[in-house]
Computed example of a mutant assay.
Amino acid sequence: MKKAYSPIKIGKPVTKGSKVVIEIENRYDFLSLDQIKFVAIVDGKQFPFKAAIGPRKGGQVTLPIPSGYNALQIIATDNQGNEVENELFQKGRKNQEQFLETALQLKQDSAYIYVKQGNLDYTFSRTYGKLLAVRKNGELILTKGPAVALIEANAEDGGKPNVAGETYQNNIAPLKQYEQYTLFADAIEASQTGDSISVRMDLRYQNGTGKQKFVFLKNGLLRVEYEMFYQREQEIDLYQAGLMLELPLSYDKLAWSRKGSFSTYPANHIGRNEGEAVLHAVPLYEVEEHGKPQAKDWKDDANILGSNDFRSTKGNIYWASLRSPAATVKVLSNGQQHARAWKQDQQIQWLIADYSNNGSEPFYGSPHSYGRKKLKKAIS
């Protein structure tokens, strides 16, 4: 809301020689920006500056900062001390991982395929075409996936009965989400080159057919490719689609970096661009626990799936990770995928979605309907 009503619009900084220039738009009807306090923050050091731009006008301002900055934050404050704009501009790549060369080893028999990638061990089932387990130095870090998941929009708008006469005393069980059920693998093969190991499979699902490919690289990365031809009698509204992983319950700390709609968010906002969240799942049999105060921040309120912060979808991620005391599982992306984690069946479910919308809440129906997808019924 604050961004929507901000009376100041700050453009992206441009470096011209040794100077940094920005465009500023004044959306005040009567106030000149020379009455607004501006400060540029670079590496923790503050550089106050002035912007003499009249009401309903725009102009260029040269900032009194060095041009070789990595992160630039600009804060505008009015004469009553209210922050009226806050923008953050960062240079450089979002994923700056340092990769070390790892040894690759492939073994297989009539029932399983075994891939060793450094200190990681992967086990595939030939029968079902599934990645059954991943172990790091012998310790289990992945119990299922990555497997194709299609999450339907909730037709009941929240899973609760009609509001009329509702007392909220009944336990409202959360909807459970699972990956697409595979019946068996039509074909599965594994091969090794000097730089990688590939495991390819043709899969037959309960509701269609598909292909999946796992590519293990010498730098320690695993790349997963997938496609699915979905077959079902009725049309469904799609909420999210992508690859689902299952991890032990000890992976209860989420971290992420994402490309948000805005460059800055409040520190306690679940949609902030970077942050950490803890699972903190609690059995909740009512909307609120009787006689117990809620958390200080709404993001820390929790139910059986986890805290609001942990279980909310982090859209357009550059990377996301789940951490336990023993290890960290990390996904690298390009700002076009979405991460969502929650507790289910005494495990951590983690969806890395290539498609995501705002769900079935009616309030968001019309303003967010563009680009929504349906899975159409098969035509025989």
Score class of each variant (00 low, 15 high):
Glu83Thr: 15
Glu87Val: 15
Lys91Asp: 05
Arg93Cys: 13
Lys94Thr: 01
Glu97Lys: 10
Glu101Tyr: 00
Glu101Met: 03
Leu104Cys: 02
Leu104Ala: 08
Gln105Phe: 07
Leu106Ser: 06
Lys107Gln: 07
Asp109Leu: 09
Ser110Leu: 05
Tyr112Trp: 08
Lys116Pro: 05
Asp121Gln: 12
Tyr122Cys: 03
Tyr122His: 05
Thr123Arg: 10
Ser125Met: 04
Lys130Glu: 15
Leu132Gly: 00
Gly138Tyr: 02
Leu140Ile: 10
Ile141Phe: 11
Ile141Ala: 11
Leu142Thr: 05
Thr143Pro: 02
Gly145Pro: 07
Asn154Cys: 01
Gly158Asn: 01
Gly158Trp: 01
Pro161Phe: 11
Asn162Glu: 03
Val163Arg: 14
Ala164Ile: 06
Gly165Met: 14
Thr167Ile: 12
Tyr168Trp: 08
Asn171Glu: 07
Asn171Ile: 02
Lys176Ile: 04
Lys176Phe: 07
Lys176Pro: 01
Gln177His: 12
Gln180Ser: 09
Thr182Ala: 07
Thr182Asp: 04
Thr182Glu: 09
Ile188Asn: 13
Gly194Tyr: 02
Asp195Phe: 11
Ser196Pro: 00
Val199Ser: 01
Arg200Ala: 12
Asp202Met: 15
Arg204Asp: 12
Gln206Ala: 13
Asn207Glu: 15
Gly210Glu: 05
Lys211Thr: 08
Phe214Ser: 06
Val215Pro: 01
Leu217Tyr: 14
Lys218His: 02
Gly220His: 10
Leu221Asp: 03
